[in-house]
């Protein structure tokens, strides 16, 4: 039984899984943050809208929207602050070797 909410959550879980694979595979802290970016934007968006569709329109949906808004504003700031600390403390980004 595939309804709108489960379909949306499945799409979101796909993006979350991709982000987790990226966090394992990518070589350094800067590129890993890009993988986290996918989770923060699309993965959260699809899963949370899926959950919002589950019960129909209630007040909880408004709050889910608020959570989404908060995550979209807050997570980039954490990434920014962490990476800035990394760069200032001498972590050099991984660079592809020229062949």
């Amino acid at each position: 039984m595939l309804t709108v909410d489960t379909l949306l959550i499945f799409i979101g879980l796909f993006f979350l899984t991709v982000a987790a694979i990226g966090v394992i595979r990518l070589p350094d802290v800067f590129s890993r943050s890009h993988a986290l970016g996918i989770t923060d934007t699309l993965g959260n968006f699809f899963v949370l809208t899926g959950v919002a569709f589950y019960q129909g329109l209630t007040l909880a949906d408004v709050k889910i929207f608020l959570i989404l808004l908060a995550l979209w504003h807050l997570n980039p700031v954490i990434s920014h602050a962490t990476l800035r600390a990394a760069l200032r403390n001498g972590v050099r980004p991984w660079i592809k070797e020229k062949k």
Binding site: H73, L74, V77, H80, A81, R84
Partner: peptide, 15 residues
């Protein structure tokens, strides 16, 4: 103070 403009704006909006 944290000297990133992004953090300043975040704090002002979210407090």
């Amino acid at each position: 103070p944290h000297d990133s403009v992004i953090v300043h704006t975040l704090a002002r909006v979210f407090t």
